[in-house]
Design a protein around this nucleic acid. Sequence first.
RNA 1: GGGAGCAUAGCUCAGUUGGUUUAGAGCACCUGCCUUACAAGCAGGGGGUCAUAGGUUCGACUCCUAUUGUUCCCACCA
Length: 906
Amino acid sequence: MQQELPNKYDPSQAEGKWYEYWLKNKYFHSEPDGREPYVVVIPPPNVTGVLHMGHIMNNTLQDVLVRRARMQGKNALWVPGTDHASIATEAKVVGRLAEQGIKKRDLTREQFLEHAWAWTEEHGGIILKQLRRLGASCDWDRTAFTMDEKRSASVAKVFVDLYEKGLIYRGLRMVNWDPKAQTVLSTEEVVYRDEKSKLYYLRYYIADADTNPVRPTGEEGEVVHRDENGRYYAVVATTRPETIMGDTAMCINPKDPKNGWLRGHKVTVPLVGRVVPVIEDRYVDIEFGTGCLKVTPAHDVNDYALGKAHNLESIDIFNPDGTLSEAAGLYVGLDRMVVRKQIAKDLEAAALLEKVEDYDNKVGYSERNPDTAVEPRLCKQWFLSMKHFAEIALPPVLEGKIQFHPSKYVTTYRNWLENIQDWCISRQLWWGHRIPAWFLPTPEGEEERFVVALTEEEALAKARKMPGYANIKPEELVREEDALDTWFSSWLWPISLFDGINSPGNEEIRYYYPTNDLVTGPDIIFFWVARMIMAGEEYLKDVPFRNVYFTGIVRDKLGRKMSKQLGNSPDPIGLIDKYGADGVRLGILLCTSAGNDILFDESQVEQGRNFSNKIWNAFRLVKGWNVSDEAPQSEVCRVAVEWFRAKLNRTLAAVDRDYSHFRINDAVMGVYKLFWDDFCSWYLECIKPAYADGGQMPIDRTTYEATLGFFDALLKMLHPVMPFITEELWQNLGERAEGETLMLQRMPEAQPFDEQVITDFETAVSAVTAIRAVRQGKNLSPKEPLSLQVKGAYPASATPVICKLAVISEVAVVKAFDDLPGDAFMVGTTEFRVPLSGKVDTAAEIAKIEEEIQRYEGFLRGVNAKLSNEKFVANAPEAVVALERKKQADATTKIENLKLRLNSLK
RNA sequence: GGGAGCAUAGCUCAGUUGGUUUAGAGCACCUGCCUUACAAGCAGGGGGUCAUAGGUUCGACUCCUAUUGUUCCCACCA
């Protein structure tokens, strides 16, 4: 039976082998059957993305949940897939084309898409391959892509349906424009960042002083500006001087005493020379800047509203790429950021710049192009009306049909839904789902006309039914160029994966939907989570999942976000190579608690690797034993087996509880300690056969079988967390037939156990620890036999354990200690003493006892104070009072004993 | 500007409806050990007036109020 196993676990020997085995036997694959389903859909990573630590955490959590459910006998399914990530991917493709000297606008849509597909095929799925290294038990046969045939058809069908329901419309709105990607963004795709910027104070001269003389009102607080030539001017503060070419008014607050004298005048826009009216609106903040606001209806959301209210002209001075257009008249073709700098200089040179102040403000940036400030822009886009969706998506979360972990995100969710804005779903991109709408020839000056349909044929049929278009030819229909927002496909994910849109009520959607748990980051609660709930309620009248586990962000040890620039993001595959997938999984899980950011450090993965090794060596120990059918079971073995069985059951119950509350790190830590502390440090040490006559004694059959049973249970408990090493060891733990696997074994269930067994064993543990401390303090060899005296209540089962683990030759239960010198300690109210002839430092012992007495007396004072408080005795529950009385009695006993001892020493 | 969360050992966090021997874990740290499973290990040990100030209560880490610090989300102050 002697095994020639190395003393270090080598993950590379096991991981690839078992993953292949699982794949070959299709253990990850699921088909609908009679069992209870358990379903997780992966948050689809970008098709061209590579694995980072966030994915490691997120996918490890999913795999733990899925593997556990599978071992609980459920029909577990984890569906993988990728997302086409329209803006991000298109940007990458445009970038690569640029390297080859190709411009996007020189290509046709078809040519561009060819390049995009080529790129997708080249880089696509790398991330899914990487997930295999982690051990992810996804059903790869079901791998989906948001732009594959079924998913694309689902998107189109939903678009048409929502249009027909009147929920999708086209509207001219002020939208967020990304000048780099040259597409509109949804409000959710704009991230605001604090920025140190400048506030420019500009002179707007009064233009009509000749015909309409300036008359200061003389009001208190009035501020009138005149230059050295006596000309009047107003001062406007702005952060965006480059937009003055679009100014079509200046606005003051009607109640502003500073600027009342400007009322009714016209002013000249500096440099531009355009004469614009001074308008009045309560919107203007009197306290901000000078109280004068320049109004640029085309380039600011508020100004747009003002422009509408006051019937102002709107001048769009930007090109789609953020350079100035012909309409600007000045700086044409220059980038807006360049113009901002230049115009400040020019204004100064023309003596039109009063001053410049430092100013902190928030600037919106594109989520996908973080260096690009979004530009408010007026244009016609496709919108999804959200009121209806907010109404159907709120109740399931508020009523607990869907549970958020942690629950604090319910508030966030609710807030967003209650203040929701319509969703701008069109994007001026080619990579994505092309909007299924066709425009019809429309006479000049008339409202655009279009039809929405699944196919061109349908579109033509629909068009021909419209008045005046009975004879329209196919080539007269012009398909919408825009694509849809990526999230317009993602929101269907839990449905479209089971083809529930194209083929409603099919077997799979009925069986697998709703899914169970979703693991994702809180950063996409609006983008994705909320919208999936909307789609689920709209199309299946049911929630898409029952639980949402929100992970935190993986940061480095110093709390910084991981980024390429900082170089603080470890390569996950490198970590797996170095520490093994199991080590990486355990490492990341140990520091993961729902909703909290996790500060990742490689030492945690090292801890995971070390734990793998611990398991490995425990296995080496157990498999190295000779088994005897004749040898009777020793008392210490009997006690240890009884105790560990109880402990195992207690932990199983605790771990179940932790998992059900999504306290996965607690569950993992529970198993970790059960294995390392309880199983290895105490149980195995108890039953480990001694050496005698130059060889190791055999272990008795009863204990051995029990130990294999425990090991088996432990491997099962560990398997969801550390799938590879557990499979490797389980396969070698007993005789296995071809095709057997740990991953399909049933997870042990907690059985009732006797709490007293655990309590009694803990007495032995405490005594052993104390005796070891005595040895250490006295510098005694761990092997030198000692004897032990016990005074007080003492479980008989403790003796064999103490004898073996503390190397005690004899335990004597005594009524009173003899006069021999020795070291004493207490476990509960039981007093123990290790007689030590000639090795006792009396002075030190006295000091130790006096310190103890002091501690207990302090404690007793607290208890006495409580008990002497009549109100406490009268009001507190009986059990609590009884407990305090027990504390009082116990402490008193202890102090008495200690004093007795003190006296005998003196 | 509005909202939410957090503040417990050097670090990261538990502390489950206020009462379990005057607060627990993991890591880190200190001391001693290469003891035939494991030095990726073993044994032992130190370390916290639970952010501050009030309040409720017989009793507060736990509930309430305020303050300070911190994180996140939302919002059109140029």
